[in-house]
Amino acid sequence: MEFAIETNGLTKRFGNVIAVDSVDLRVKRGEIYGFLGLNGAGKTTTIRALLGMIRPSEGNVQVLEQVVGPNGRGPWAKVGHLVENPSAYPELSVRENLDIARRLHRIENQSVVNEIIERLGIASYADRKAGTLSTGNLQRLGLARALLHDPELLLLDEPANGLDPAGVVEIRELLRDLSQKQGVTVFMSSHILTEVDRLATRIGIIHKGKLIEELDADKLERLRAKYLLIKAHNVNAARNALKSAGYTILSSHDNEIRLNDLRAVAAPDEVAQVLVRAGVPPTHLAVEQENLEDHFLRLTSQ
């Protein structure tokens, strides 16, 4: 199997702090891999190790089947990256910043700069100094720099940071398009779980430096717990009626009750009958499924 990213026992220690602990990542070519974790979980350290910016304390990193580092060695002509907050030379224009990136990627064709400016929707800011850009436009400049050289692999740390809602959708579609039409592998960390949920084909969850779960988006769909959400005017009476009928209450607070036993989820109509007979008809009855955020919080709180 050809992996775009492969790490074996990747560990990084800073003094006594273990930032990344024996992480074995396998990212297939063409995948959109969502890398989730709380602040300080080790996401950025992992991305920096993938880019050869930090030396692993133990283990090794291969990117596009080439061993990364030491001494900055790696397949960087085929890799685009955006690490942490976007940055640019403030006294240089957007175009000049991208022209520097073009030169350092040793691309002769000057038109790539204009093309990427158009593609990322920053044409009206092209001759403006980068120091005057809004956070969102600076993020677009960072993404433009990452995409300038048509990379095979994109390593993106919080790509939706600072973007407005329309920008988030635009970048999501751009990344999906790159993955589906050009086979670009995308490895992205994000705090915006709904974004990862919508975009990623595979998800890894890192917690306290350890990769605690890695799963396909399809599997996540199956793993997500389902529950029946009930609302009623008299929640206490409804809860007593359901208990009497043998249902297990998952949670009950304010004006809602959640049931997660299979009998309730499979036959909500029977639950409705029980409540009606008890004189507490439901005002709301729906089968719901936990989202990625719930799943993530459940895992990381353990």
Partner: peptide
């Protein structure tokens, strides 16, 4: 100070050349 160093490290142009 401009946090641009990270844009100089993973490039086809070597760090030595920079």
């Amino acid at each position: 100070s401009d946090h641009t160093v990270k844009e100089l490290l993973a490039l086809p142009t070597s760090r030595e050349a920079i």
